[in-house]
Amino acid sequence: MNPQPEWLQTRSTADDRGASYLSIQDVNKTYRTRNGDVHAVEHADFDIDEGDFVSLVGPSGCGKSTLMSMIGGLETPTGGRILVGGAPITAPRRDFGYVFQDPTLLPWKSVLDNVLFPIRTQKRVVADYLAEAERLLRLTGLWDFRDKRPAELSGGMRQRVAICRGLINDPRLLMMDEPFSALDAITRDDMNLALAKLWDEVHKTAIFITHSIREAVFLSDRVLVMTARPSRIVADIRIPFARPRIDTMQDEALFSEICAYIRDEIHQAHDKHVSR
């Protein structure tokens, strides 16, 4: 048996649970449906430190979106608790930013107005955020398109607008649920580079959901691997690459080694589950 690689973290059951910024403690979610109960999330139990970019990877239907909705306060857990800075989450928080699978832009508003939408709905002073909007739009290469309507943009551009909107109120935590899954492979690679570059600038805590192992490893400080339902977290990996992340990182042996490890974990768990 191989010695454990150093990037593989053993999960701590230390006493200082809850000292981290975000603490997910034995969280369950069961949807009651007409066809019986669906255990969407079972025993999710991990902490996230401030400043970490954390990816959740796992097969479709394993409860990633549900878990994120609970962290975001959009769903309530049926068991366990989620603490932010020590306080339980009961409702969506204004110091969180959200990016969903589809860009959900307001089609009748310009790019700039879409980015400022959270500011307006949260009744903050728009003038205070114009500079930040400009900075984000410039970082994502959208400043020249600020007066365009979403329909005039490409899919990748729309998703970048959604990310700018998620970041406009300087959230402490940005949640992204498969933001690039609707994009073609080439655009997706570009978006990964753009997001990595953006993260070198904004340094925020992030939870990023994806099906793509390479995407997760490329972008993250830490990757949590989930298995199919009943879902568990089977691996917790600290990505040992320095920032800024560069494209050529994906050619390194270590990068492929980590990706292969994650893939094996998902498949093993899947096979075990199937052969049971």
Partner: peptide, 10 residues
């Protein structure tokens, strides 16, 4: 999804 966004933005 727009309504969910609104909810997320309180």
């Amino acid at each position: 999804s727009l309504l969910r966004l609104c909810r997320a933005l309180t």
